[in-house]
């Protein structure tokens, strides 16, 4: 367990190093192009922000951030407070989206196992397909029509809307995985035994079958918690919330190499944290060693 924990954590500096190495190793232009101001400023920026040519160069963006200096090739750039605020927005969207989609997934799986009504069954079966068949940014757009987008002031209402738009595709996916697992559990002997003992259907589902199905959800769906990150990129764009996804897109568009390196590393760290959290939940749910 401890080894696994350390191994997972080690991914973060490795990603930081690899991305920096990759970005810094972008092709160097030939001599006659060296005069072009664009290229010159790009190179200067890489040397300044990324410590091009230094062994520990990949630490430089972090050192700059720690000193409170801004990163980026604008005169102003983004400093650690900006990055923290942006990350805060994205995390709020992601966590709310995760809660909404998990809530939906449990509701969905429960309904689908319980219902005997043919119309409900048809709807439940069709719904995920309908959601999959809609490009993820549609949901955000549809919500933006009445709500408008963030301009200034409190971001929270728009973060909630973004979370809702983000949650839908993830909810469809989690719901399907959970339902598949739950249906499988419902056919297993221990469920039949519990029922035979006179427990109500709901009690059987929530007390016995659902925790076991949750383990399957953890296995199948945790890697795809990234769906939420992906979704928040799109929703941030539509709702004009300048969160981490926005910063990342901006950095890529403006070729702000240092921001790309920092952003990628932060995302990698998030993924590692999510997978560690999932392991913790698994240990808690699964009594088997």
């Amino acid at each position: 367990m401890r080894v696994r924990f350390l191994r997972d954590l080690a991914i973060i500096p490795i990603v930081a190093f690899l991305v920096q190495a990759l970005v810094v190793r972008l092709p160097v232009p030939v001599s006659d192009d060296a005069k072009r101001p664009q290229v010159v400023s790009l190179q200067a920026q890489m040397e300044r922000d990324l410590g091009k040519g230094h062994a520990l160069g990949f630490l430089r963006p972090w050192a700059k951030l720690a000193r409170g200096e801004p990163l980026g090739n604008d005169q102003q750039g983004f400093d650690i407070r900006d990055l923290a605020a942006a990350l805060g927005s994205s995390l709020r969207i992601g966590i709310l989206g995760l809660a909404l989609s998990l809530g939906w997934a449990y509701l969905y799986a429960w309904f689908r196992v319980r219902t005997r009504n043919p119309l409900d069954r048809r709807t439940l079966e069709l719904l995920p397909d309908l959601i999959y068949a809609t490009p993820p940014f549609f949901f955000a757009l549809v919500l933006a029509i009445p709500l408008g987008t963030h301009l200034a002031g409190s971001r929270l209402p728009f973060e909630a809307a973004a979370a809702l738009a983000t949650a839908l595709p993830a909810a469809a996916f989690f719901g399907q995985v959970l339902h598949g697992a739950l249906a499988h559990e419902m056919g297993r002997p221990y469920v039949l035994t519990a029922r035979a003992k006179g427990l109500s259907d709901d009690r059987v589902i929530w007390r016995h079958a659902m925790p076991n199905a949750t383990l399957v959800l953890l296995d199948g769906a945790v890697p795809k918690v990234t769906l939420l990150l992906t979704g928040s990129f799109i929703a941030e764009r539509v709702f004009n919330i300048h969160g981490f996804g926005y910063l990342y897109v901006y950095a890529a568009e403006q070729r702000q190499a240092a921001l790309v390196v920092v952003g990628t590393t932060v995302f990698a760290a998030l993924l590692v944290l999510v997978s560690l959290a999932a392991q913790a939940v698994r240990t808690w749910l699964d009594p088997r060693p």
Binding site: L26, P29, P223, T226, T230, I234, A252, R255, V260, F267
Partner: peptide
């Protein structure tokens, strides 16, 4: 495979678009 499966697709695609764009602007 598991590692690639867990990567946020959009993030990777944007990063690749960024690399391509830089390479292109540098005339590579």
């Amino acid at each position: 495979s598991e590692f690639f499966f867990a990567l946020p697709d959009i993030l990777v695609l944007i990063t690749m678009a960024f690399l391509l764009k830089t390479a292109r602007d540098l005339g590579f």
